[in-house]
Amino acid sequence: MNDLLKMILFDANTQWVLIGTMLLGVASGVLGSIALLRKQSLIGDAVAHAALPGICIAFLLSGEKSLFVLLIGATMTGLLAAYCIQFIISSSIIKEDAAICLVLSVFFGFGIVLLTKVSQTPSGNKSGLDDFIFGQAASLVGNDVKLMAGAAAVLIFITALIFKELKVLTFDPSFAKGLGLPTGLLNFLFLSLLVAAVVVGIQAVGVILMAALLITPAIAARYWTNSLSKMIVISGIFGALSGMAGTLISTIGEGLPTGPFIVVTATALFLLSMLFAPERGLVTKWVKRMANNKQLRRNKLLQGEKRSGFHEL
């Protein structure tokens, strides 16, 4: 514990990694909330899986492991996957769930094939590209973390800027169009933000579990409020907490992957919300109903006594 404290207080790199994963948690919590309400959570999952072949292609082409280059590759295939999904839905009889499933598995399968290929090249076998599968926050260094933190901050800023437009677009797209908003452009912009959030988070969380950082904080936050802006803030906080916990655990434990611990933390927050959130929580609702039933029974009993008293007269 002391070592951990020392690390946080004195090691600049650990501090940067923490800031990076927390900002990432906020960005994915924020964008995940909107994706959830747009019923696009699974698109985030597909995009994350589809980033893997992009990372491998970028590595094979450039021959070096520069995070910036790898992320450009990830963005390319991520965006391509998102558009494949939209294209399949709009131009065939295949429904959204099947389209997402198809694209996700095809891209990820291709990514694994490429990863095998990479590990057979002389420089590839120790490239650490397989860290991208489950994420490894501890392996982030210097400029990579700053890139990640900066990108996450930009994503949060853009979302705040167009919050009002995204809100009406999500709630009622045809009304948004009727207001004169460029809905096609906004859809494209949101999808790009989502892809960017996924790509930025991949190094820390990993392609397989990145979707959990988008979805879980958002569904947990939905339990606490009936206001979109509050939901987004709460989701961002949950995302930051999950990112922080996952990073700390993976940094102390030698070689522990970050993604799974982020997911476990986020899931714990979700379970807590599902059970104990005011109004919507299961336990809260149950306690309220019991109290209510008791009150009703008491009233009935009182009425019954009155009535029987009446009969005696």
Partner: peptide, 11 residues
């Protein structure tokens, strides 16, 4: 959708 009546009218 997480919003109230006034918010919808504000749209």
């Amino acid at each position: 959708f997480p919003t109230n009546a006034l918010d919808v009218v504000l749209m």
